[in-house]
Design a binder for these strands. Structure first.
Length: 105
DNA sequence: GCCATGGCTAGTA
DNA sequence: GCCATGGCTAGTA
């Protein structure tokens, strides 16, 4: 099924992830009913029109890795640290405890 | 075609 | 490390 994943839905769901928590590309995809669309979520993040209102820096890789960021992964890491997260190398510390619970509409 | 992913196998040590 | 998957864009005709 192609073209059924709307960026606006992704952004809306992502806005529910609070400061100090993160989610993953795959989790967003699954919560929206597109379990195989993790990579598409990454593309949608890259097209984020407004990083102030849509916290795309809170979307990380499924293994707790940093993932990508339009303004550089170092910037992303710095922001997450400012929000209270810690890292062990390039992985988020206590990743499972930092995962937001996504609620589908 | 390219990619801000992710899950699964082969096959080395 | 390979490749299926989904959305996007460059750039040919």
């Amino acid at each position: 099924m192609r073209g059924a994943l709307f960026a606006s839905d992704v952004y809306a769901l992502l806005r529910t992830v609070p400061k100090g928590k993160v989610t993953t590309y795959g989790d967003l995809a699954k919560a929206l009913g597109h379990p195989r669309a993790a990579r598409a979520i990454g593309r949608i993040m890259n097209a984020n029109p407004d990083p102030i209102v849509v916290p795309c820096h809170r979307v990380v890789a499924s293994d707790g890795g940093i993932g990508g960021y339009a303004y550089g992964t170092k910037v992303k890491k710095d922001i997450l640290e400012n929000e209270g997260l810690s890292f062990e190398g390039d992985r988020i510390k206590d990743f499972e405890k930092r995962r937001a619970v996504l609620k589908k509409n």
